[in-house]
Design a protein around this nucleic acid. Structure first.
Length: 648
RNA sequence: GCCGCAAUAGCUCAGUUGGUAGAGCACUGCAUUCGUAAUGCAAAGGUCGCGGGUUCGACUCCCGCUUUCGGCUCCA
């Protein structure tokens, strides 16, 4: 007998060799039906795999992440089985479960799998799933595995096997398809009832662009058709919040083929919104003793040779601008830091001057790969809400904490609650690719980790993700369909102060090297606005939105009064427009609701007589009548409250 | 940059084995002067992304390019 401990701490005895599924049956047959996978002593475990020693177990259902994971992983095998039947000779790479669904990377040889082929593959999968075949686990020696996959000509699998430790290799067989796999899997394909293959894409083998590009097929499956339908409906809803679509509809920004790829043009409404975001940050930065600077959009090539960026990125950037002068070359600036370093250098600096904080909304130009461009989130010209802080080593942590405060103020003000924080540190096994002394790196990394702890920030630590010049803390926010984008960033830099030979005179009257912190709470104005659009669905906070109020005259007879109202609101710094089209009031309401204007003021005979407006709030309907002056005062107060609550 | 999809009026999209294009909305004009999510009528609007080829004839088939979209790689 063996002792099985359950998550609630209770212990029961079972015969040796019992499976999690049998344990579930011993509790209730209903539970047994729902079990997809398990963990045994925190190791992932098939529901049908025997347990031979005392263990603590967890049982996973569809409602558990681990359950979904096994379900989708098995679905990937089902996809592979279908592909194997439909495309003889197809080779398989890897096929894992992902956050929402699964994919399989395959090499179909000379065949091409297109999006239009997906329905047929789905059909085949459904057919195979209906056989309710079991997924059978088997231990296999390295030698046998190499022979088995080698005989089938599976070069990708053989490459994977050759890197595995003998004795740890397992395969799973589903119908006619046997795959190298660690598991765990669901007991059989029986619960896979709803299947949708979403897209095909290219993906380099092992993520290496120098190796062959395989065909990646993305899909998702569910135990119930209803859940699939709901998932697809959710994706449809998300598409409506796509910033590229809303950017056009709300007249915020555009692109022009003639201007060039990835070069956004901000329309009046978008520019106004962006400007308000900038003013908002300027105000905060002023409180934190930042000083605004302004630097040109180009810089002498030598500047970037000094910074080291030319050597690293020169070839893949916009190429130098030549002048009539022989040998003279300028680069569009890909970042603002070198310019700010020169400002630092312009005067002798004392330890009493530090920290120095130079801020600039600096537009930079980077030649991003064409395939990587994406709406406003990945562009070739963008404006960083940049600042460079020059600090003494003893000020590093404190200054880091202050930057975190600024980011926190902004995220709170714009209700970005679901951000993820990531600390990027050196790859401990490959320290030579980083610049700077071990001692400095260790200090800086420790400072970031401690700062996060002090702030109670739950940050994920990623090794090997640091920039070559220093560790960093990034804030990531998801877009409408779950893609992660880096917004705020704080980076410690020992490299540039070194390269630019920045100095300050210490209290000991000796020269010392300052540490530099790069930081951008928004990240870039472009990306931030993009994510903001997707988060709000275009319903921006009242203080930020382009048009706060639209006045809707009932008929043309009241156009003059409507304009008077708008003028009075404008006198109170309220952004109001008039919809004086010759349309019925119902039509005007509909159109302006769709434009997401927060307040609609309807004016007709009654309102004109009493100097009133009939107030309607976006999405909430009629709020009744108010005096113009009252409405204006209320709105001004609403905006002030928003700003005061967030900027303290 | 790579793999795959795509590109038709300002926008969203039809266009059925190749016979030189159509709708709704928007825009414009006229009528209407209206009370809380779409008033009616009319007119106008397209080098079917660009370039080449096949063909008597190409929006449609083929090739190249540009751009977009889904991914991959990259992201100072």
């Amino acid at each position: 007998m063996i002792k099985i401990t359950f998550p609630d701490g209770s212990v029961r005895e079972y015969a040796k060799g019992i499976t999690p599924l049998q344990i579930a049956e011993s509790i209730s047959s209903r539970l047994a039906q729902d079990i997809l996978a398990a963990s045994v002593n925190d190791a992932e475990w098939d529901a049908t795999r025997p347990i031979n020693e005392d263990a603590s177990i967890k049982l996973f259902k569809w409602s558990d992440t681990e359950g979904k994971h096994a379900f989708w992983h098995s679905s990937a095998h089902l996809l592979a089985e279908a592909l194997q039947e439909m495309y003889p000779g197809i080779q398989f790479g890897i096929g894992p479960a992902i956050e929402n669904g699964f994919y399989y990377d395959v090499d179909p040889g000379t065949a091409v799998i297109k999006e239009s082929d997906l329905p047929a593959i789905e059909k085949k999968m459904a057919e195979l799933a209906a056989r309710k075949a079991e997924l059978v686990r088997q231990d296999i020696t390295k030698e046998d595995a190499l022979k088995m996959f080698g005989d089938r000509g599976e070069t990708y699998k053989c490459e994977l096997i050759s890197e595995l430790q003998d004795g740890t290799i397992t395969t799973y067989t589903l119908g006619s398809f046997t795959d190298l796999c660690r598991g765990p899997h669901i007991p059989s394909t029986a619960p896979i009832k709803a299947i949708k293959l979403l897209s095909v894409a290219g993906a380099y083998w092992r993520g290496d662009e120098k190796r062959k590009q395989l065909t990646r097929i993305y899909g998702i499956t569910f135990p119930k058709k209803k859940e699939l339908d709901e998932h697809l409906a959710l994706l449809e809803e998300a598409k409506k919040r796509d910033h590229r679509k809303l950017g056009r509809e709300l007249e915020l920004f555009m692109f022009s083929q003639t201007v060039g790829q990835g070069l956004p043009l901000w329309l009046p409404r978008g520019a106004a919104l962006r400007d308000r975001l900038e003013q908002f940050l300027r105000k905060i930065q002023k409180r934190y003793d930042y000083q605004q600077v302004i630097t040109p959009h180009i810089g002498n090539k030598q500047l970037y040779v000094t910074s080291g960026h030319y050597a690293k990125y020169g070839k893949d950037s916009f190429q130098p601008i030549r002048t009539p002068e022989e040998g003279e070359e300028y680069l569009l600036k890909p970042m603002n830091c070198p310019h700010h370093c020169e400002i630092y250098k312009a005067f002798p600096r004392s330890y009493k001057d530090l920290p120095l904080r130079f801020a600039e909304f600096g537009t930079v130009y980077r030649y991003e790969q064409s395939g990587e461009l994406h709406g406003l989130t990945r562009v070739r010209s963008f404006t960083q809400d940049d600042a460079h802080l020059f600090v003494r080593p003893d000020q590093l942590k404190d200054e880091f904490l202050k930057v975190m405060d600024i980011i926190s103020i902004i995220f709170k003000a714009l209700k970005f609650d679901n951000f993820e924080a990531q600390i990027s540190l050196r790859d401990p096994n490959n320290t030579e690719k980083y610049i700077g002394s071990d001692e400095n790196w260790e200090k800086a990394e420790a400072a970031i980790v401690e700062a996060c702890q002090e702030k109670g920030l739950n940050a994920k630590v990623e090794y090997g993700e640091a920039a070559f010049y220093g560790p960093k803390l990034d804030f990531m926010v998801k877009d409408a369909i779950g893609r992660r984008w880096q917004l705020g960033t704080i980076q410690v830099d020992y490299n540039l102060p070194e390269r630019f030979e920045l100095e300050y005179t210490g209290s000991d009257n000796q020269k010392h090297r300052p540490i530099m912190i790069h930081r951008a709470p928004f990240g870039s104005m472009e990306r931030f606005v993009a994510v903001l659009i997707e988060h709000t669905g275009g319903k921006f906070p009242l203080w930020l939105t382009p048009d706060q109020v639209v006045v809707l005259p009932i008929s043309e007879r009241f156009n003059d009064y409507a304009r008077e109202v708008a003028a009075e609101l404008a006198a109170n710094d309220i952004r109001a427009i008039v919809d004086d089209r010759n349309e019925k009031i119902g039509r005007k309401i509909r159109d302006n609701e769709l434009k997401r204007i927060p307040y609609l003021l309807i004016v007709g005979e009654k309102e004109q007589e009493n100097r009133e407006v009939s107030v309607r709030k976006q999405g909430e309907g009629d709020l009744g009548v108010k005096k113009i002056t009252t409405f204006a005062a209320d709105l001004v107060q609403e905006v002030e409250q928003m700003v005061n609550n967030s900027v303290i």
